[in-house]
Amino acid sequence: METINLEDLFEAKLAKNEMIEPKDWMPENYRKHLIRQISQHAHSEIVGMLPEGNWITRAPSLRAKLILLAKVQDEGGHGLYLYTAAESLGITREEMLDALLTGKAKYSSIFNYPTLSWADVGAIGWLVDGAAIMNQVMLQRSSYGPYSRAMVRICKEESFHQRQGYEIMTQLSFGTSEQKEMAQDALNRWWYPTLMMFGPPDVESPNSENAIKWRIKRETNDQLRQRFINQTAIQVEYLGLVAPDKNLKWNEKKQGYDYSDPDWNEFKSVIKGNGICNKDRLLSRNNSHKNGEWVREAAIAFGKKQEQESKAA
């Protein structure tokens, strides 16, 4: 009988827009859904350090280098808050890392695309972080307290990232003809993968229904995608670039842009592991982890010796 009461209490909190906190009772499925979502989000931040990190040593000015380095560091910091938020649901960092390193856990598939020029650093900030913000602004009002609070902090930094990405795109689009070409090429390559970030169309999205019911998510994939396109199409125009979609047109009736769907077969294929960088990203994470093993062991061994010495003293 007690379970029913607890469930009622949980539902009542959701109905009143109150936060669920780590010590509160929650349905097992809610907990599982959150662990999956938050850990995937954390993994995405950590793997997301790699495509941009690819350009740190080649950033073309000292200012650009400082900004990019700080940005990549922010992503790592986001990973850290998110792992901590997930830990409050009863999973350890080791378990989550293990799932990432063995390929069991997913991360945002966008990071399986390569960064081929400096303009990609701009495009990632502008488009990829822009799309992430759409999602994350919504998640600030998520029903799980630690996740919601992590998002508030993350959103502030992400909007700075988006601005710096757009600044790079502006610099390139109004720069030399080679720079503009670089910007257009980056837009061509990142446009559809970015649209895929919002997930499959609502009719095919298996996890959306519960997420909305539990107020983990508050808007559907298609709603967010549409909002992103409405905002971004105007920026594409301002930059004097052309989106790689002939059907991108303002639709007065729906007060939004019409657009072509991304290639959902490609989406599924990259998620399955067939993107050009899937193997490299995972290998890179595994190598860092493996090369760091003796460092972590040394730190633990030293910590134990310290403890023994302080006990003896």
């Binding site: 990190g53 740190i56 040593t57």
Partner: peptide
């Protein structure tokens, strides 16, 4: 030092060394 960014022995240390490089 910035060559270590994204490849540190564990996350906290990755952040610390990146900070130093910055």
């Amino acid at each position: 030092l910035s060559e270590w960014t994204g490849h540190g022995p564990f996350l906290e240390e990755d952040l610390a060394l990146t900070n130093i490089a910055l």
